[in-house]
Design a protein around this nucleic acid. Structure first.
Lengths: 340, 340
DNA sequence: TTGTACGCGTTATCAG
DNA sequence: CTGATAACGCGTACAA
């Protein structure tokens, strides 16, 4: 019981291979008699013919595969996004290949190469630090791609970003307005632009509000040792005489780790310390206090990414496009002002 | 700047394409002179030759692609599992294709067909209700697959399961031993065997301990309306005179939804009602009381699934294998006995 | 409508 | 025994 090929269909229908191909691809410009069409369709049906995508790809140079590179598919931010991308990709006739880079430039490059070797039609990429050369290579190879979540300085590429600087300002402003004066920012040690913007938005807003910035204003965390750095960092800061009255975590993982730590340290939220976080995750829902957090437009990011990529795949020489989508601030009890 | 093909390498090295193929695939049985080997390797290197996987697949009938069908990649249980499977698959030289079925038999079939059309070498599948015919078709097509998480009655297939019945007994026994006498089970309305076993393990343990089973002992939830069903279900049960003193949730999503509801209803855990849950998720960590939960051996499930599948792909006529892995009970504060 | 070259490796076969 | 030739896998699309 071997695979049914187009040849078998042609034989059964009593027509040529070419006719079968035309009929099955609806390329009936050259008016093929209705009779032939019916014969072919019936034969294909009866034999349960399934075209061989591999042969098709070999000839057409298209695979209808989209590769998605995320930092870690186990991170809810990326798995939620992946799900949205999967659905949109399927809708447009693509199959999704997913890979996790672990924020590691070598793994990242290996993934990109793997996707390139598989001749994915295009890539949706959350780039990691120091992946510029890799992306440049991709551009040289003319493989269409769209950056999401992050972008890199020194790379001119299509991208979808959110208003990181702006929303970070908004969060900070909200905290300031609620009367918090010593706000701690917890951020990653990183050179990723989108994360630096979050920090910058924070700092600029403090300054704008004439709050002086001291050296412990920002706690930097190594992404490879989150729990540990949070533990020692917060321990040190909490034992200080000048404890912060609010903490702003710039990612979901930092927030989850930080909230665990604060709880374990017996800090009451928001009475003792207020908390604001980035991203949205199931975990926030089980925290006893409803959180103030930055809600990213995941659906829009995912669908836009796929649609942009699809357009790039089908159109040569499209002008670069950098879409900025807007995250919104969701206000919860965790930043309820002390003086209200 | 078009793709470099094997022909280009042969030309540059001054040998035949056959020799290039042999050298690059390390098929040097027929002792090819070292000189030729070096020339080929150098030419390939200089031209930066990348073999065309599509052409290779067309000939060899192997794609080195594994398809993974989960209920929803956005569910942390599946995304964590997917990550493990991804890593193991890569280690064995496969690329992972992921699809979400939404527990929907039609989507499920569409995914399976898509993967079959892409000629995945094998599939790792979390089957949905009423997908028997689809799996039988797969067997007829001789596409190797391994079932995970669930299995279906009426299907003889390789599978990896956990000790659902047993661990459910263990959880129930733990609750009984802690002195709880009116335990509510929250489970899905379903015919999926692995979930029924969880319920059965629960019921049998009650019986064994001479606890009478009343009609509200099990709250059945529609998977498509979890929050809603949990809300109304728990409302009704909590307003009863005979309130349960413990609740056992049989999945992570049920637990998260249920814990939200219990908290909102002002139920104190475990003083008023104890809670045990299934699966492990980040969300549990932010719940103010450390939870008692069933920890599935995700790593073992993922790696075993890939290894079994790999073996099936490479060996015809392997005897069926049903691996049972053991989940463990993790005991937290949420089931701390009242009389201690 | 149809014959057929082509996309690109793999591997059986055969000549040197 | 080395290594080149060519059939093959299967659709696509141009030329006839």
């Amino acid at each position: 019981m071997k695979r049914i090929s187009i040849k078998d269909v042609a034989l059964k229908a009593g027509v040529s291979i070419a006719s079968v191909s035309y009929v099955l691809n609806n390329k009936i410009d050259s008016r093929i008699p209705k009779e032939t069409i019916d014969k072919v369709k019936q034969a294909a049906e009866e034999l349960n013919y399934r075209p061989n995508n591999i042969a098709k790809s070999l000839k057409t140079q298209r695979t209808h595969i989209i590769g998605l590179v995320v930092a870690d598919i186990a991170n809810p931010y990326f798995s939620q996004l992946a799900r949205i991308i999967e659905d949109e990709a399927n809708k447009l006739g693509y199959t999704l290949l997913i890979g996790s880079s672990d924020e590691n430039a070598e793994k990242f490059e290996a993934l990109i190469n793997m996707f390139a070797d598989r001749q994915a039609d295009g890539l949706i990429i959350a780039p990691v630090e120091n992946s510029q050369k890799c992306l440049l290579k991709l551009q040289k190879q003319k493989i269409p791609f769209v950056l999401i979540d992050r972008y890199l300085s020194g790379i001119e590429a299509d991208s979808i970003q959110i208003n990181n600087y702006n929303i970070s300002q908004k969060v900070t402003e909200h905290l300031v307005n609620e009367g918090y004066k010593n706000i701690l920012l917890v951020a990653y040690k990183t050179e990723l632009q989108h994360l630096l913007q979050r920090t910058q938005g924070f700092l600029d807003t403090l300054e704008k509000n004439h709050l002086q910035i001291h050296k412990n204003q920002v706690l930097l965390i190594d992404k490879d040792a989150i729990d540990q750095d949070i533990n020692t960092g917060l321990d040190s800061i909490l034992s200080n005489t000048e404890k912060p009255d609010a903490v702003f975590f710039t990612s979901n993982k930092l927030a989850v780790s930080g909230l665990k730590k604060l709880t374990k340290s017996g800090v009451s939220i928001p009475q003792e310390i207020a908390v604001a976080a980035f991203d949205e995750t199931e975990a926030y829902e089980l925290f006893p206090v409803s959180l103030t957090y930055v809600k990213q437009p995941l659906s829009a990011i995912g669908t836009t990414a796929v649609q942009m990529l699809d357009k790039k795949i089908n159109t040569k020489l499209l002008p670069l496009q950098n879409v900025i989508l807007h995250a919104e601030l969701h206000i919860g009890e965790s930043t309820k002002s002390k003086h209200n």
